[in-house]
Nucleic acid binder design. Structure first.
Lengths: 191, 191
DNA sequence: TCAAGGATTGAATGGTGGTTCAATCCTTGC
DNA sequence: GCAAGGATTGAACCACCATTCAATCCTTGA
């Protein structure tokens, strides 16, 4: 029974994620999520007090997955330049694989309470990047700089550069290399 | 009479801007705008077919004002490095003067139709920046790069770097210089 | 001064979609 | 087997707010 309850909760989150990946947040009425999860509308409220709470958790889950993937890719590299290239490649590559979801997570108009979760998401990326930047600075690979400001600005640059392609549905094949070049310059990677 | 009509229209836009600067888009019910403008709710609809149309125009007006101020400041400088420093200083300085309005224009959740206007806003900044970057590249002051990608990424970086301080209500005094340093690196300005 | 026609009013309307809840269905422990 | 208690249902509810519109008020041209 406990297990069944927990399974329902997971099914709701999965259903919400599925609809977000398909139709974005706009398609995510509580009724639609419940139907996709194979439950009645009201049952959703046995698991989440409000819609905003549900989607805060959905965003948290999806964001964590993204951040983890990026962190894992970066951890395979050794220099800061390579680590940050991996960040860009993974972030952008995944976004282009699931553009509707990426757009929802990055930029789609959502409930303010959910929007707050987006800040956490961006903050998590910024911290990940800041760590690699700080190491690069410490080792002398990168010039002195405020790793946190650099990281924040890079997150903004990445997101902004992806929103266009995501909205258009396609990115030119050179978007990602160009972004990596930009970011290496911004970090002060010596050529 | 024509004049009175036009004056009403302007009063509505000004009222909407005032409320946005005070309480953000969230505070902008049609009733509140009408009251602030000294009109009845229904009268707003003599001037704008829908709320979205009204706020599209409000965003357009406010954005144009911002972009113009930034363009004017940049035009006073001669090198690309100085021009882009002026862009950052003006953009960030104005945002910090009117943080609630800046947040509304940059990042607050709004009606999708209004959101579209925001893209135009960001695009206008990107084009302004791209122009200066292209000149810098042409003159050899900056290394070869795709001016449009650089500009888009810089707009994102600027916006992201400002959202934190705007939400917090204050920015450290060194935020702007640090941002200028970041952007100079990202452009490849030689030290 | 006075009608005609447009401007103004603001309470009523309506659509949307999140939220509730009484009825029903299961599961569980005796 | 069988009640008790919690889970589930989904139609009804309700709040919010953009939008409308019949009644009223002005302005204007004669």
């Amino acid at each position: 029974m406990k297990a069944r309850l927990n399974a329902s909760r997971q099914r709701i989150i999965a259903a919400a994620l599925g609809i977000m990946a398909e139709d974005g947040y706009a398609g995510c009425s509580v009724a639609a999520v419940a139907e996709q999860a194979g439950l009645a509308t009201g049952s959703v409220y046995r698991h989440f007090p409000t819609k905003a709470d549900l989607f805060a958790e959905v965003f948290r889950t999806a964001s964590q997955r993204e951040v983890d993937a990026v962190a894992r890719a970066a951890a395979l590299e050794t220099t800061a330049a390579e680590q940050l290239a991996a960040v860009v490649e993974t972030f952008a590559g995944r976004a282009l694989q699931a553009p509707r979801l990426a757009y929802a997570l990055l930029a789609e108009p959502v409930d303010p309470a959910v929007d707050a979760e987006r800040l956490v998401f961006r903050r998590a990326y910024a911290e990940l990047i800041a760590g690699h930047v700080a190491e690069g600075v410490a080792s002398g690979e990168l010039p002195p700089q405020d790793p946190d400001l650099t990281a924040t600005a890079l997150v903004g640059a990445l997101a902004e550069a992806m929103v266009g392609p995501l909205a258009a549905g396609v990115a030119g094949p050179d978007t990602i290399p160009a972004l990596i070049a930009f970011i290496h310059r911004a970090l002060g990677v010596s050529p």
